[in-house]
C-alpha cells in the first residue's frame, strides 16, 4: 500500500514539477549550443529550434552559440563544465558518438543529460547511372569477390558514411577492416568522384543526392532506413537481404548535474516545441524526418548507439580496443 501511495505522491510531485516547469520555461533565457560552425546540420538544427521556440513564445529568448571543432567534441568538452546549468541545451547527433571515440576525447556523452532525439536522416548508397551494379546484392557480390576493388566515396573518416561502409561490407560477408573507403571533404567533391566514375559507390544522406537520383545521373541501390521512405522508390537494404539499418540522428542534451526540476522543465519545453506548428514547418522546409524520442527512450537509445558505433569503429580498425 505504501508503495502505491509513494508512487502516487511521486507522480503528483512530477506533475507539479512539470506544471511549474512549463510556466517557468516561458520566462527562460535559453542558450542553444551548436558544436559546429554556422551553416552545418547542427547549426541549422539549433537555429530552427531557436526560431520555433521564439515564434511560439515558449521561451523569453533563445540564443544560438557556435562552438565548432573536432566533430563537436570541442563544444562537448566546454559543455560538461557547465554543471547544473538548466538554461542551456546542446545539439548533437550520431556523428559525435564516433568523433568522441576517434579523437580519444577525454569527455563523453555519458556525462551529459539526454533530453530528446529530434530528427533523423536516412543514408543511401548510390552508383553512377552507367555502373554494371544494379542493386545492393550486386554490390555485396562485388565486395565478396574482392573487397579492395570496391571503393566507397563519402564524408570524413569515422563519420556516418564511413561507419555505414564498414557495416555494409560486414553485412555482405566481407572483412570490414579491409573496406576501401575514400573520405572526401565536402559533398561536392565526393559527388564528382562518383559521377566521374572514379569510385564504385558513394554513401551520403539521402537528401544530399536526391536531385541526382531524380535526374537519373545516380542510381540509388538501397536506403538504410528500416522501411522505405514515403514517396521514394528505393528499396531498403533489409528488403534485399542485407542487415543494415542506420540513421543519422540529431538530438538535444542538457548540462551534467542538473536538478530533476530543471530536467523536467527542459524536457517539457522541448516536447512542446516538437509538437508546435512552427517546428513542423521547419522540418518540412529543411526536409528533415521527425524522430522524436522523449528523454527516457532517448537515453536508452543513446546507450545502445554508443556500443554499436564503438563496435563498428573497432572492426574498421579506426579505434583500438
Amino acid at each position: 500500500m505504501s508503495v502505491v501511495k509513494f508512487a502516487w505522491s511521486a507522480a503528483l510531485a512530477a506533475t507539479m514539477a512539470t506544471v511549474l516547469a512549463t510556466s517557468a520555461a516561458a520566462q527562460m533565457e535559453l542558450r542553444i549550443i551548436a558544436p559546429a560552425a554556422p551553416g552545418g546540420g547542427w547549426d541549422q538544427t539549433a537555429r530552427s529550434l531557436q526560431q520555433a521556440m521564439t515564434a511560439e513564445k515558449l521561451v523569453k529568448s533563445a540564443q544560438v552559440v557556435n562552438i565548432p571543432g573536432a566533430g563537436g567534441t570541442v563544444g562537448l568538452a566546454q559543455f560538461v563544465n557547465a554543471k547544473g546549468d538548466g538554461n542551456t541545451l546542446m545539439v548533437n547527433g550520431f556523428v559525435m558518438v564516433g568523433a568522441i571515440l576517434l579523437n580519444k576525447s577525454p569527455v563523453n556523452l555519458s556525462q551529459v543529460t539526454p533530453i530528446a532525439r529530434l530528427t533523423e536522416e536516412t543514408q543511401v548508397i548510390v552508383v553512377p547511372a552507367n555502373s554494371p551494379i544494379k542493386d545492393a546484392k550486386d554490390l555485396a557480390a562485388a565486395v565478396k569477390k574482392d573487397v579492395a576493388r570496391v571503393t566507397f566515396a563519402g564524408g570524413s573518416a569515422g563519420g556516418a558514411d564511413h561507419i555505414m561502409a564498414g557495416m555494409f561490407v560486414g553485412a555482405s560477408g566481407g572483412e570490414a577492416a579491409k573496406v576501401n573507403y575514400v573520405p572526401f571533404s565536402g559533398g561536392g567533391e565526393s559527388l564528382a568522384a562518383i559521377l566521374g566514375g572514379r569510385v564504385t559507390a558513394g554513401i551520403s544522406g539521402y537528401g544530399e543526392y536526391e536531385g541526382q537520383i531524380k535526374t537519373g545521373r545516380l542510381r540509388a541501390i538501397g536506403v538504410s532506413s528500416p522501411n522505405r521512405l514515403p514517396g521514394v522508390d528505393v528499396p531498403t537494404f533489409k528488403e534485399q537481404g542485407i542487415e543494415l539499418v542506420l540513421t543519422n540522428w540529431r538530438s538535444l542534451v542538457a548540462a551534467p548535474g542538473i536538478s530533476d526540476a530543471q530536467k523536467a522543465a527542459l524536457t517539457a519545453l522541448v516536447e512542446k516545441t516538437v509538437k508546435s506548428n512552427a517546428w513542423q514547418e521547419q522540418l518540412k522546409q529543411k526536409g528533415w524526418d521527425n524522430a522524436y524520442l522523449s528523454a527516457d527512450a532517448f537515453t536508452a537509445f543513446l546507450k545502445n548507439e554508443i556500443v554499436r558505433v564503438g563496435d563498428v569503429l573497432k572492426s574498421l580498425g579506426l579505434v583500438k580496443s
Binding site: A148, A177, K178, V179, N180, G317, L318, K320
Partner: peptide
Amino acid sequence: TTLTISQTY
C-alpha cells in the same frame, strides 16, 4: 611515431 593506424590501401 605516435600514429597507430595506417591506411589499408
